[in-house]
Amino acid sequence: MIKQLSQRLLGPVTLLLLALTFWLGLWVTPPDKVQGNLARLLYLHPAVAWVALYVSFGTATIASALYLWKRSRSLVMDRVAHCAMEVSTVFILLTLITGSIWGRPTWGVWWAWDARLTSTAILGVFTVAYLALRRANDDAELRARRSAVFAIIAAINVPIVHFSVDWWKTLHQGATVFTQDGNLLVHGIMLWTLFISLVAFTLLFFWLLRARYRLDVLRGERDQASLEEALVQRRREGVH
């Protein structure tokens, strides 16, 4: 009952929170002291990056690890990992695009070879490579095993991306919310809008993941049905 309700509400609540984020971000929050209206990207870029790096890549990695662990090995885990990685690829791309749009007027360049940007781009290539690896293998078990191993190796990059702004001097700003001393550096309603955006985009991820998973299941069923249909036809040909 609760499960059904939460599944039904996921879409509408996500849309509502996204609308709230955009309303607060574009009309209610004040411009920033230094960046002016450019700071409104604060309600988009960090949330997209949060989903890309931690929520979706994290889901893909955990599902991959659960697949490799013999006690929890099932193709459901593999399917979850695949769907989460696809969503992650889109969100990493969005992270790079929104970051570039923010970088041009603030830094003065679309792209800088600093540790945060470079490691994020490399992570993006890893996710694309993961999808390429899946397409190259037809055998479901082999594909699942190889993709799981690859996802886990690629996940080493996530802490590098996260800590890059602490380990190295980067052009990219340091952490805003997860600061080392725990001090929040965003003030007032700007902070609340940032939090709402994080929740909204996290829900959006789960909504997309569910839709993608359903699509994958339907695709599997369709393939199975068409295989059975083909077998029936071949049998009929044999009878005539």
């Binding site: 290539v125 390429a132 190259a136 293998n137 082999l142």
Partner: peptide, 26 residues
Amino acid sequence: TLYGALSGGGQGPATLLPVLSLPAFA
């Protein structure tokens, strides 16, 4: 060696290998 094992056996291993390994080689 690790990425070679990952890319071997499937479709187009020669083209898959660079995609898999170059981000790790960076």
